[in-house]
Design a protein around this nucleic acid. Structure first.
Length: 418
RNA sequence: GUGGGUAUAGCUCAGUUGGAUAGAGCGCAGGAUUGUGGCUCCUGAGGCCGUGGGUUCAAGACCCAUUACCCACCCCA
């Protein structure tokens, strides 16, 4: 027996109905905010992610599915969506069109990690990106899209955390202060954090270790070191969120794992999810296009983990409506009836009537049972009597009432009934 | 990469300190109803007890290894 690779999942019915449902709701919301779909390749040249996401990030360091293709180019299965979308935006010279550009995407991402609840090697993200505007209202809109989506799905008790992580102008100054502070308290930090001081000091702020947390409480906060531009931007974002009635919590410890973020960073969490409790997260990345394509294009977006969304829906007991049914179930008795019914079956379908028949040689009782299980509106019964009289027995499965209908006009008659 | 937990029918799970022919409920199939679903009742099919080794007169239970899954660390969606 060959199993699916570790960290991958089959999405079978009825689970696949749920996927359809949340995807269709997402598309509804995205369209409502005037975002259009973009589809980029599932693999890219490795350099794109190395440059875009950052060499020192965990993703690039140890989580990428990278391999050489037959021409020896290094290929990587996309670990996230933003780098590809930015690449596509630049490659197709979309910056030449009227801005801003608003895209959404949906699809699988790949990261080589140990799977656990809410974390898989192939997982699905659904996200949006806005290019070309630095207006803080755009930051607020991006957050609003996500929050609105949560609302129409009926999710509750979610927390929105926001922070500003500065820009190339103000962040270096802050990082220096932070490093100095951390070095002064180095003996109180865990081993991981000691290593992080030089490598990625912002990440220390994320540490869940209790002892580190005490050090972090006293650490300089980046929002106290923002340059004027970043501070105004952050204030504006807060005002805009208030303006559209979106509650938030300022979390100075919120730093995103990817290098390209500037200014706004945000995460939406559901505490009930367990260790991986972020449903969606994102932020502004005004440096990324420069990094990838030597062109100065501001951007902001978020990515949402579909599996985590489904987990949250389940934890909150939100039932996703699955209305599976067929219009007609054909019950047959005897070989001749089978042949006649099979012809009718296709005729029904050609007329746009959803119809099903038994292929398992079941008894009449079992065929009725199948019809019931499939939620059939009507069952058409054809046996020898019916063939002789050229009239089919049509049973209304709700009322149990039956009537005789000419087989020759059956499809047309039923078309009128449903 | 590290740690912990779990593994018995399609599913959810029982199975005592080692001593059966390995069970239940649900689901599935057939029947009660010689051609009619839901409710009820009856019957039936379906198991290398994750895999490999070991201890023992005797292993689904105990020991070792291995694999898979789950959870957690790291980090993120």
């Amino acid at each position: 027996m060959i199993n699916a690779p570790r960290g991958t999942n089959d999405i079978l019915p009825p689970q696949s109905f749920k996927w359809n449902y949340i995807e269709s709701k997402a598309k509804y919301i995205f369209d409502l905010y005037n975002y259009d779909e973009i589809r980029t390749p599932i693999f890219e040249y490795t350099e794109l992610f190395q440059r875009g996401i950052g060499e020192e990030t965990d993703i690039v360091e140890k989580e990428m599915y990278t391999f050489e293709d037959k021409s020896k180019r290094s290929i990587t299965l996309r670990p996230e969506g933003t780098a590809s979308v930015v690449r596509s935006f630049l490659e197709n010279k979309i910056y030449g069109k009227a801005q801003p550009t608003k895209y959404y995407y949906i699809g699988p991402m790949f990261r080589y990690e140990r799977p656990q609840s809410g974390r898989y090697r192939q997982f699905n993200q659904l996200g949006i990106e806005v290019f070309g505007s630095q207006d803080p209202r755009v930051d607020a809109e991006v957050i609003a899209v996500g929050m609105h989506y949560m609302d129409i799905l009926g999710l509750e008790d979610l927390s929105l955390y926001i922070n500003s992580i500065g820009c190339p102008k103000c962040r270096p100054k802050y990082l220096k202060r932070l490093k100095d502070y951390l070095n002064n308290n180095i003996d109180k930090l865990c081993e991981d954090c000691k290593r992080r001081i030089d490598k990625n000091p912002l990440r220390v702020l994320d540490c869940k270790n209790d002892r580190c947390q005490k050090v972090i409480d006293g650490a300089p906060k980046i929002i106290d070191y923002l340059c004027d531009e970043c501070e105004v931007h952050f204030d504006n974002l807060k005002e805009n969120l208030h303006n559209i009635n979106i509650d938030f919590i300022i979390d100075p410890g919120l730093v995103r794992g990817l290098d390209y973020y500037t200014k706004t960073a945000f995460e939406v969490k559901y505490e009930g999810l367990g260790a991986q409790d972020t449903i969606f997260g994102g932020g502004r990345y005004d440096r990324l296009a420069e990094e990838i394509g030597k062109r100065d294009v501001p951007g902001i977006g978020f990515a949402l983990g579909v599996e985590r969304l489904l987990l949250t829906l389940k934890k909150q007991g939100i039932e996703i409506p699955i209305d599976k049914s067929v219009d007609i179930y054909l019950t047959t008795i005897g070989k001749k009836a089978e042949i006649a019914s099979f012809k009718l079956l296709e005729e029904f379908r050609r007329r746009g009537i959803k119809a099903e028949i038994d292929y398992m040689g079941r008894s009449v009782g079992s065929q009725m049972k199948s019809a019931d299980r499939m939620n059939a509106t009507y069952t058409v019964i054809i046996g020898e009597n019916e063939l002789e009289n050229k009239k089919a027995t049509v049973r209304n499965m709700k009322s149990g009432k039956e009537q005789e209908i000419d087989i020759d006009n059956l499809v047309k008659s039923i078309e009128k009934m449903i």
